[in-house]
Simulated scan of single mutants.
Amino acid sequence: MIDRLLGFLTPRQFLARYWQKAPLFVPQALPEFRDVLTPAELKALAAREDVQARLVVERDGVWSVRHGPLSAGDFRGLKGARWSLLVQGVDQVLPEGKALLQAFSFIPYARLDDLMVSFAPAGGGVGPHFDSYDVFLLQGLGHKRWQISGQRDRRLVQGAPLRILERFRAEQEWTAGSGDLLYLPPKYAHYGVALDDCLTYSIGFRAPSAQELVTQFLAYLEENLQVTGMYEDPDLRLKRHPAEIDGAMLDKVAHLLEAIRWNRAQVADFLGRYLTEPKPHLFFEPPSRPLGFGAFVRVARTRGVRLSLKSLMLFHGPSVFINGEALRVASGLRGWLTRLADGRELAGLNAAPRELFEILYEWYRAGWLELPAARRSHG
């Protein structure tokens, strides 16, 4: 399926030739693709508190954006307007959305962001724009005309509530139907317009800015760095200007600040926590009537376990990261937990040690991990 998804390129070839380098349009990348939800179901998701949604409306060249939760009233009075509904994080609320996202697991989970689904009637779109991250655009219901450009002119329309390009010059154009896929590297200008009622699935990838990474890492250091000592100046001399910060004080403070140091292990710990931190609008629901530990073990041995749709899990060396927390695990448990992180589910637990179940049970009680429902027998 992956070979078809990438236009009969292997993942290695795709990464070498296209990833962050050039766009790629793949007709019938998923020829039997079925929408994971209907337009009506997407509107229902947009009404939820735990989902991020936007209604983008363009009327006579004037753009507006309404943010969710959205009600039925938000969709009234749109006659004569061009509009598009965008819902983020569909993979965090629909198992089918998570399954679609995992079809792109040839890109590391550390880079994977979420699945956004958009619906637009004929003429709808969000204007010509560019993204600062990689994106795969998979067409579902209906048809969409895509125009793209490698232009370097990225000036934006002043005062618009969206990052709409002031001047867009199309260089390539396609009409995407169900199962067609368009990959775009960062900052590649594109303009999609619905030709009829259509659903588009955007598989986006995280690309934090250098400023964001530095800011978050400094916050991490603030919580984890301990520096001893205090400012001292037993050699203080009488100064001509009492309001002056003199060179001696600057030198002493500069020397104190040299204690701010870090190593690769700290960077790995920061990245694991940062990349798995749930988005602020997400919350976990622990089981209303959790099983006791013994019952949990018996069921898990039979059915296995799986991560909650909202859970994020990564690993590095002996450390496992889940939902912003870090756990250093013994070598005998690493294989089990890396399998869970890679596949998001774990079966074949008959030979698993008690220590593994103790970790899994804690995550189960927190709502981070679930027990699959019992399979129904047919006969």
Rank of each mutant, 00 (worst) to 15 (best):
V157F: 04
L256F: 11
D74R: 05
S149Q: 04
F130H: 10
G192C: 03
D91F: 03
P95S: 06
L371I: 12
Y274E: 02
A176V: 05
L349W: 07
A373S: 11
F130W: 05
P128L: 14
L256P: 00
L371W: 13
D60E: 06
H316E: 14
R167N: 09
L275H: 03
A207F: 03
R273E: 12
I359H: 13
R145S: 11
M1S: 14
I2Y: 02
A160F: 09
D74T: 10
V26A: 01
Q52L: 12
A29L: 08
F136E: 00
D131W: 09
I322W: 10
W262R: 10
P27N: 03
L236K: 15
W262H: 10
H316W: 14
A352Q: 00
L369M: 05
L9K: 15
H378Y: 15
P27D: 06
W336T: 07
G292N: 13
L141F: 03
F119L: 13
W63M: 01
L199W: 13
S331D: 09
P69K: 04
M230K: 07
Y231G: 09
D74C: 09
P95N: 00
P108V: 10
A259D: 06
L137A: 01
G204R: 06
P27G: 09
L346H: 06
M1I: 07
P31M: 03
L221K: 03
E223N: 08
A44Q: 06
Y188L: 12
E355C: 11
W363S: 12
R76G: 11
V214T: 13
R48T: 00
T215D: 14
Y364G: 14
R206D: 04
L360C: 04
A373Y: 12
E370C: 04
Y231L: 12
Q211Y: 04
F104P: 02
R12H: 07
R59W: 04
P278H: 03
L165A: 12
W146G: 07
A243R: 11
L250Y: 02
Q158N: 06
I164P: 05
V267D: 04
P95E: 00
V26C: 04
A122S: 12
A341C: 11
R152N: 10
V87Q: 00
G229K: 11
G7E: 09
G379D: 10
Y364D: 08
S64V: 06
L9Q: 12
P353E: 01
A259Q: 11
L291N: 01
V329M: 01
